[in-house]
């Protein structure tokens, strides 16, 4: 660049710092809700504490002055739906839901039959959840019998059930089923659920027995919304085994919790990937159709595209119990 021509483009570093700081303060004031939400979504630690300790008071002030309005207008313009809410059952409900639904299901004795797929009328399946839903959705599309399933995948990366202040799955589940009205739902979630949960005014960690019960309750709440109280089946896929022993333990707990919720919620089906694949032992590879494939991504949790074949077969097997036409052929 010619230095003479550049002169009209330069500024002293102090002024540049002024521009940057004004921009960040302006954006923070008008975006305080997003800062709090971003903080809520961070892993426990100093960064999260700092972001929330700055963001929350800022959000209170900005909300009082009315600085949320421009952002709300922009959200509307970009078609963004709010994914957080206060006072939902997911946050504040009671564990009685686990018993109540079970009793109801028992009284009804049998569950309703679901609309069966037919020629020209494929089953509309919503595959949703966290990032694990991505490859499962793609593979379900690949492996589904021709013309019988129409799969739509909506992955909400980095979300889970233990942090509704960041992303409220009860609210999101309602929005998803209202918008799509699917015939069946596959829900793959849990990889991001290592947070402490609050229940009855107490805080429990993933290794506390109360955590498992609270998690089961949250599964029941979200599954109830997704299934429309039993109108459609929900195939819930908790995380598989993990390479990291600590995560592995949390995922094991989650699997037990989903099994517990299954007994309570009409339409909820627990897909046990955890103890079925590799007989409950973690391995990077899996033998599929006699061939060894690299089944897991480098993080030791997510399936690879090749590895996703195995859990999808389990999902299709479970689906075939509700939709016998799927039993004839479950693809490659």
């Amino acid at each position: 660049m010619d230095p003479r021509r550049n002169r009209d483009l330069t500024m002293p570093a102090g002024k540049v710092l002024g521009v940057v700081l004004i921009a960040l303060v302006f954006a923070a004031l008008f975006n305080s809700e997003a800062i709090v939400r971003a903080g809520e979504g961070m892993e426990q630690g100093t960064t999260r504490d700092v972001v929330l300790s700055v963001g929350r008071p800022l959000d209170d002030v900005a909300g009082t002055i009315g600085f949320h309005l421009p952002r709300e207008g922009l959200d509307l313009a970009f078609g963004q739906e709010d994914k957080t809410a206060s006072g939902t059952e997911l946050e504040e409900g009671s564990t009685a839901i686990l018993k109540r639904r079970r009793r109801q299901a028992r009284e009804e004795k049998e569950e309703p039959t679901f609309r069966q797929p037919g020629p020209g009328r494929p089953l509309e399946v919503l595959v949703t959840g966290d990032s694990e839903a991505d490859f499962l959705g793609q593979r379900l599309t690949d492996q589904s019998p021709p013309g019988l399933l129409q799969v739509e995948t909506v992955a909400r990366n980095a979300t889970g059930l233990t942090n509704p202040a960041f992303f409220n799955w009860e609210l999101n589940a309602q929005q998803e089923v209202d918008a799509r009205d699917p015939d069946a739902v596959v829900m793959a979630i849990g990889g991001n659920d290592g947070f402490n949960v609050e229940s009855g005014g107490n805080l429990y960690g993933p290794h506390d027995p109360e955590w498992e019960t609270e998690f089961a309750r949250r599964v029941a709440v979200v599954a109830g919304v997704l299934s429309g109280d039993g109108e459609r089946p929900v195939y819930w896929v908790p995380p598989p085994t993990a390479r990291d022993p600590e995560f592995n333990e949390i995922y094991k707990t989650q699997n037990r919790a989903v099994e517990k919720a299954e007994a309570a919620v009409p339409g909820l089906r627990y897909v046990d990937v955890y103890s079925t694949l590799g007989k409950g032992k973690y391995s990077d590879d899996l033998k599929i159709d006699g061939q060894k494939v690299l089944a897991r991504q480098p993080d030791g949790v997510h399936f690879t595209r090749d590895g996703a074949v195995a859990p999808v077969r389990l999902i299709l097997r479970e689906m075939a119990r509700d939709f016998p036409a799927l039993e004839k052929d479950s693809g490659p």
Binding site: G18, V19, V20, L21, I22, A23, L24, V25, F26, A27, F30, N31, P70, R71, L74
Partner: peptide
């Protein structure tokens, strides 16, 4: 300049 840049971040 700061407000303009802040608006871009907001959008």
């Amino acid at each position: 300049q700061g407000v303009a840049f802040g608006l871009v971040i907001l959008i």
